[in-house]
C-alpha cells in the first residue's frame, strides 16, 4: 500500500512521470537488546522517497522516527530488512557523502568561528582554501547570515546557531538533507520564521529532505508528504500526501485545506496511540 502511494506521482511539478527513488526502505526492523529485554525501535518499515520530495516524519517520542533517520544515515544499523540510498546501502552512501545531517542541537564547534564551522566538512573532504571560503560565504548568505562569518557560536542566538548548522550541512552540496528535529529547541516565533526560510531554501535548492518533527503544523506546512509513526514497536501507520500549493506563507495555516490536513495527521497520531493503550 505504501509503495502504491510512493510510485503514484501525485505531486505535480511540471515534469510528471516517475522520478528517481532516492530512498528505498523495505521491511526494515531494528531491535535494541537491552538488559530489560529487546526494544523494538522499528518494525517492518516500508517507504520510498523520490527525488525532490520533502518528507516529514511525525509521531510521539519513542516512535522510532529519529532512529529511522539514523539508519538511513548509517548512524545505526537495522537488524532486518533492506535500505537503499540512491541504489546503494547506507554505509556506502555515507562514504560517498551523499547527505548532509542537521541534528537536534546545532553541534557547532565552539573554538571555530561561524565561517570555519561551515568550512569544517569542506576541510575534511579536501576542498581548496579558495573554494572553502567561497562556499562558506554562499551558504551563510543562503541562511541569511552574511556578515556573521567572524563571530563565534556563543555570540549567536539559538536560532542563528541552528541556521549555521544548516549552512554547514549544505556547504558540500549533498543532494539529500536529513534534519532531526532541527527547530525542536527553539521558541514558536523563531521556529515559524525558520520554517519559512527552510521552505524557500528547499524550493531554491530542490534537495530531497527527510525531516523529523513532533510539531503537526510544522510538518503540514513544510512537507510534500507526511509519514505518521507510532511507538512500541516503532512503525509507520499512515502516509499523508500534502498537496498544498508550492508558494506557502504562514497565513496558509489558517486555510481549511491546511486545517483538514493537520486534522488528518492528528487523527493518525491518535489512532496509533489508542492502539498502544
Amino acid at each position: 500500500m505504501l509503495d502504491g502511494v510512493a510510485t503514484t506521482d501525485q505531486r505535480t511539478d511540471g515534469q510528471g512521470g516517475a522520478r528517481a527513488r532516492v530512498i528505498d526502505i523495505n521491511g526494515l526492523s531494528l531491535t535494541f537488546e537491552t538488559r530489560d529485554g529487546p526494544v523494538f525501535a522499528l518494525s517492518d518499515v516500508n517507504l520510498v522517497v523520490e527525488q525532490g520530495e520533502f518528507v516529514s516524519f511525525i509521531g510521539p517520542s519513542g516512535c522510532g522516527k529519529t532512529t529511522l533517520l539514523r539508519v538511513v544515515a548509517d548512524l545505526e544499523t537495522g537488524t532486518a530488512g533492506r535500505v537503499l540510498v540512491n541504489g546503494v546501502p547506507p554505509d556506502q552512501a555515507r562514504r560517498e557523502r551523499q547527505y548532509g545531517y542537521v541534528f537536534q542541537a546545532p553541534a557547532l564547534y565552539p573554538w571555530r568561528t561561524v565561517e570555519r564551522n561551515v568550512m569544517l566538512p569542506l576541510e575534511i573532504m579536501g576542498f581548496s582554501g579558495e573554494e572553502r571560503r567561497e562556499r562558506a560565504r554562499r551558504n551563510l548568505a543562503l541562511v541569511n547570515l552574511a556578515g556573521f562569518e567572524r563571530k563565534y557560536p556563543w555570540q549567536l542566538s539559538g536560532g542563528m546557531q541552528q541556521r549555521v548548522s544548516i549552512a554547514r550541512a549544505l556547504s558540500f552540496d549533498p543532494h539529500l538533507l536529513f534534519m532531526d528535529e532541527p527547530f525542536g529547541a527553539l521558541d514558536e516565533i523563531v521556529r515559524d520564521k525558520l520554517n519559512e526560510q527552510l521552505l524557500q531554501l528547499w524550493r531554491h535548492t530542490r534537495k530531497t529532505v527527510l525531516f523529523v518533527t513532533h510539531s503537526i503544523p510544522e510538518a503540514v506546512f513544510l512537507s510534500t508528504r507526511i509519514v505518521v509513526m507510532s511507538p512500541r514497536p516503532g512503525r509507520i501507520i499512515d502516509v499523508i500526501d500534502c498537496n498544498l500549493p508550492a508558494e506557502r506563507t504562514l497565513e496558509l495555516r489558517e486555510t481549511p485545506e491546511f486545517l483538514a490536513l493537520a486534522q488528518r495527521v492528528r487523527d493518525g497520531l491518535r489512532a496509533g496511540h489508542s492502539y498502544d493503550d
Partner: peptide
C-alpha cells in the same frame, strides 16, 4: 556523529 556523517 557529525564527523561520521562527513565520513571523516
Amino acid at each position: 556523529d557529525l564527523m561520521r556523517t562527513y565520513s571523516a
